[in-house]
């Protein structure tokens, strides 16, 4: 287990995300741990890529941070602390508060197809919109302006903003997903296989958006990727996962390119 070496980045006062002795079991998996005793600290401003084959647990890890795993009735033990708040023991109100600070990006974009693009982005502000205002679809002007700006920033033309989201291509839907996350003014961005359904060119475009956001605004970003090329190209710190365990954690500077793929994904002829 000598692959587990501490992060070489300058250590901040407190990490923004700290995961300790964390395990997850799905009821359908007959006791097999989806995550097995994970210990991980993510510092403010990092751009982390979690690499691993599908089924390695990287998706469960991200979805645990804002407890989306509850939708799959996962049982979680250990501790997850985001920005000083205990996530696993948060009340439903506290959980909504936590979620509002975390922008989540999905592999299948998860936009509401029948709503206009702009409204999809505005749903990022729902946690700060009152009950009646949101029921009647009334949003603050400043948020509308911000939505337009974020959409333009991720590359969606102003004249398309009132179109239905169903008219967009996959890459465009993902940009809407990113804009939605940006409207939350997140302290942390979690992206679960954000480019797995996109072609290589669009994938790079989308990855560049994450990179820019991280560099310009310093938003801590964790991205799940299964593609080694993209992992190596965009990750500033790379974490490897296999069968629910954390097997690799190094800053980009310390990575041996020759053995990198084998270290994380294993030898193709192994097993």
């Amino acid at each position: 287990m000598n692959a587990l070496s501490p992060s070489l980045l300058p250590v901040m006062a407190t990490p923004i995300l700290s995961i300790k002795n964390f395990s997850v079991v799905y009821p359908s998996a007959r006791g097999v741990k989806a995550l097995d005793n994970i210990n991980l600290e993510i510092n403010q401003g990092e751009l982390v890529v979690i690499a691993g084959v599908s089924g390695s647990g990287k998706s469960t890890l991200l979805r645990s941070v804002n407890r989306l795993t509850e939708n799959d009735r996962a049982q979680m033990t250990g501790s997850v602390v985001f920005d000083g708040t205990d996530v696993l023991n948060a009340s439903s109100k506290q959980l909504r508060q936590i979620r509002s600070h975390i922008g989540f990006i999905f592999q299948e974009y998860n936009v509401v197809e029948r709503l206009p693009i702009l409204t999809n982005v505005l749903t990022g502000t729902l946690s700060k919109t009152g009950f009646w205002a949101s029921q009647f679809g009334i949003f603050k002007e400043e948020n509308k302006t911000l939505s337009h700006q974020s959409l333009v920033r991720v590359g969606i033309d102003q004249k398309r903003h009132s179109d239905r989201a169903s008219n967009l291509s996959g890459g465009q839907k993902q940009r809407v997903g990113i804009a939605r996350a940006l409207l939350q003014k997140p302290r942390l961005i979690l992206a679960d296989e954000p480019v797995a359904s996109l072609d290589p060119i669009t994938a790079n475009l989308v990855m560049n958006i994450f990179k820019k956001i991280n560099e310009e605004e310093g938003i801590t970003t964790i991205i799940n990727l299964h593609d080694p090329v993209l992992t190596f190209k965009y990750g500033r710190r790379i974490i490897g996962m296999k069968q629910g365990k954390l097997i690799y954690d190094k800053p980009i500077e310390a990575i041996n390119r020759a053995t990198f793929e084998e270290d994380i994904y294993g030898r193709p002829d192994a097993e």
Partner: peptide, 13 residues
């Protein structure tokens, strides 16, 4: 269910 999850993830009620 995916969009539902996405809106839940923004902290909406």
């Amino acid at each position: 269910r995916r969009p539902i999850e996405a809106i839940e993830a923004t902290g909406a009620s």
